[in-house]
Amino acid sequence: MSSTITSRQMNPFDKILDKLCLTPAGFCGLALLFVLPFIPPFNQEYMLRWLIYCGLIAAMSVGFDLTAGYISIVNFGYAAVSGFGGYSSALLVINMGLSPWIAMIAGGMTAGFIGLIIGMISLRLRGIFAACLSWFFGLAIMGLTIKLVWLTRGQLGLRTPRLFETDSNVPFYFLIITLLFFIYLACKWIVRSKMGLAFQAIGQNMDAARTSGINPVYYRVMNFTISCAIAGVLGGFYAHFYGILTPDMMHTSKTVEILAVAYIGGRGSLWGGAVIAFPFIFLMEIVRSTLSNLPGLNLVIYALVLILVMIYYPGGFSYFYDTNIRKPKNKALRYFFNGRA
């Protein structure tokens, strides 16, 4: 976003919004998310559980989009990396008695380390090869998790302590929304910085980027590390929210779920996936729970939406928003959708 007005002319509110990378519309959306658990249909516990799941997928899709949308490599082992973070966090808590909060961060760091490895070994590969390599890596991690029964209890599932000692889902909901916001903010700041420019240059044309003096090794590995660290922290949240970890959370279908949300939201926008995850995943959960005599129907709809979006609207929701909603005639509305920047 190029700023046409210099920062001197902006009032403090706009300045803060700009630093937070939010438009007034985005700010309202965030505020809505924070009051949502008190609005009647959503204040029931099972609805909150769905909303937490929405928030988790939204945050994952932001981290995923940092790789897929900016350096154009689909990290197909994303769920596995996240699961790795979750498992390492859970194991740290169980075996070493760490507090879940610190363990979550440690999980993020170990997942970031995995991202470093994936980034290093996929350096010579491009496009679909790199996607396949990260996929195989994910499969290997998942296979290890299933087979190292003495450590992870395999398919039986690992019981983990929860972050808050309550039965209520409300604190978890606020935590995931905060996490989502900070992840978004971190990614957006990275994207706005010089590093983000380098990411885009690498994503569009690697050879041209190299010619203009960008070191693709450093930036690609950096990107993988950051994006995987985000996945790891979220995996830690998953572990300490649901209280049970199974290797299923590393399955490729989970990556597909994140990927679908990120792409329907619009690649390269960061916010698209986060916005679309809430209505989309929520509706899917409603379909799944109300039509439970038709198992798999929600995933059929899921896949159909993904296919239709890929064929007819590959830009996703963020492209639709940018072209159709963002430029209304009304000045106040325009401010609402764009902010001052």
Binding site: S72, I128, V256, A260, A303, M310, I311
Partner: peptide, 28 residues
Amino acid sequence: RRSTDDWVMNSFLLTVGLSVLLINLHQL
């Protein structure tokens, strides 16, 4: 007919969707 660029990645994601669709249609 509609693809402009990035055919490989787009078609890959399309087949991902197709895979999920066929698996769940079978189940349904």
